[in-house]
Design a binder for these strands. Structure first.
Lengths: 209, 209
DNA sequence: CGAATAATTCACTGAGTAGTGAAAACTATC
DNA sequence: GATAGTTTTCACTACTCAGTGAATTATTCG
């Protein structure tokens, strides 16, 4: 009568099924509100099986997030051909980063990372290290590495991109969320180019009364 | 022997003390990880008292966040004097918004709102409505309201500001987090001005191979 | 002083949660 | 077809949390 116990017949892609359910739920509900039970239910599996494969909740999160993408390498894969030309560099940066958001598979990973990383100060420290490292490494390998404000400009550009990505892909603010990807890029790229070039210099704002 | 029960002597600012503890904890740990018990402990009060004053957890959050600031009015208080001049408009916008982040009291409220609002898709909907409404109302009352891309530019500017605020105040990315407020503004304002003016037009990026 | 009201605490419930240990069912190998 | 190894489920523990209801103590006001 209780024939539903034990291993199920058929070759099991169960592990991957769990990761898929986990990634989707982490992207939708964030870390804290995603329960192992919910993941198991979505994957039609016993909760203990999730522990069996990934030990604990953090293990599931790491495995799920890293399964479709290795985010830390986004800024590291700078094609060596483009140097001296800041124009195409900004274009490449924006396209490389935003493609991770545009692609449906990797978008879940990005969303989960930012949702979790912005949730509280403890997890923000992890995200901070990640973003700061990639920003710095990218600034160091860019065509502007010799300028004294290279890191500042790189950080400003990163913040710009992160903010726009959150608006379009997480908060879904219109008209940013509804426009075509290439149109979105057409708006973003020129601004980034100016930020990275000397077309845009810091200027003290006039005092407000 | 059990003399610690019941009302405490002295005039009680207990309600305000609870709100202060709540705001600080919500800013630091986000919504889900902040427990009513922790708030009560920080305020040196029984957890039931928190329920007595604010009914439920959501009530505490709303009261705590709205106590130091009314965020929705940030973009609505546009001084009527500045029209036609996009330059000072961008300057005013950046300074008004970022001052909420710079001020220690209101920063906790801002942090709590964004942490909670980005936590999951349900709460993101609340934040989306808030940001989209303020962005639209600001675009409608700006000197650019007649341009067909006014809303697009306003949304891009909002995303820009939100991203930079998150980098400097939440993730604390260097060198943005460590620089002086006026220097930070000096970097931000010119870029915003260009975004809002016709100095920055959308341009299709060159195709990547 | 005495009654009403508000602040504060105590003791408790009920519902979820992550995680554990062992048994059961399946597969592969000899 | 026995044995070893893996997947899967079951039953359970220990814990934390939001929220309730009543009792207790202070304040206020007649």
């Amino acid at each position: 009568m209780r024939a539903r116990s034990g291993r199920r017949p058929g070759d099991s892609g169960t592990r991957e099924q769990i990761l898929e359910s986990a990634l989707q739920l982490f992207a939708d509900r964030g870390y804290a509100r995603t329960t192992i039970r919910a993941i198991a239910e979505d994957a039609q599996v016993d909760p203990a099986l999730v522990h069996h494969f990934f030990d604990n909740k953090e293990g599931v999160f790491d495995a799920a997030v890293n399964s479709p993408l290795s985010v830390s390498s986004v800024f590291d894969e700078m094609p060596p051909s483009m140097e001296e030309t800041g124009t195409s560099e900004a274009s490449w940066l924006a396209r490389a980063y935003l493609t991770f958001w545009e692609n449906e598979e990797t978008r879940h990973g990005m969303t989960a990372i930012y949702r979790a990383g912005l949730a509280d100060s403890a997890t923000s420290e992890t995200l901070r290290a990640r973003v700061e490292a990639s920003t710095k490494s990218w600034a160091a390998s860019s065509g502007y590495k010799d300028r004294p404000d290279a890191e500042t400009r790189a950080a400003l550009a990163s913040g710009h991109l992160v903010g726009l990505a959150l608006m379009r892909y997480v908060l879904k603010i219109h008209p940013l969320a509804s426009m075509d990807f290439e149109e979105f890029l057409a708006w973003v790229v020129p601004a980034l180019e100016q930020r990275l070039s000397s077309e845009l210099e810091p200027r003290t704002a006039p005092a407000q009364d």
